[in-house]
Amino acid sequence: MNRTNVLSGIVCFAIGAFVFWLSADVPSFTATDELGGRFFPRLISVLFMLASLGLVITGWMNIEIQGGQVGGGKGKSVPRDEDERVPDDEPSDALTIGGMRPGTLRLFGFIAVMAVYTMILPLIGYIPASLVVFAALIMIAGEYRPLRVLLGTIGITAVLYLLFAAIFGMNVPTASLF
């Protein structure tokens, strides 16, 4: 059994069922349009559930049906863009914090800092928020030397601000807190 495929199939089936249930609120038809706004999301959610079932069943049977072309061989999966030789994470015996491997910590760190960025942007404005957040991201990504972190942060913030706000005239969020 391919547990990843079975579990992701079940989650996708649940999403499809939720959308189907949710679409009950959409008006079903109008005088000129027999199908109405409800039909298309319902049709897609049913197909979504069927595809999810297919994934669950093939995952249960441990089959991977690759894509392909009529008259041709099996489809070539498109190679990922990143350097495949770099492992996804440090070795399993690497230092862990709270049971999590360093790569996982960096991942959650990035997501958390990005979430903070979207919250503080309207409060303290683009430049202060970027200075704080970019410094944090550079450090999480593995650069700890203070001078380099400082220069990198100022450099990235300055280039982005000058290019997009000053040259392209884009409106960036301003502080509402002060």
Binding site: L55, G67, Q69, S77
Partner: peptide
């Protein structure tokens, strides 16, 4: 959907 994938259902 059928070509650019390792698993057609995905």
């Amino acid at each position: 959907a059928s070509m650019a994938t390792k698993n057609i259902f995905k």
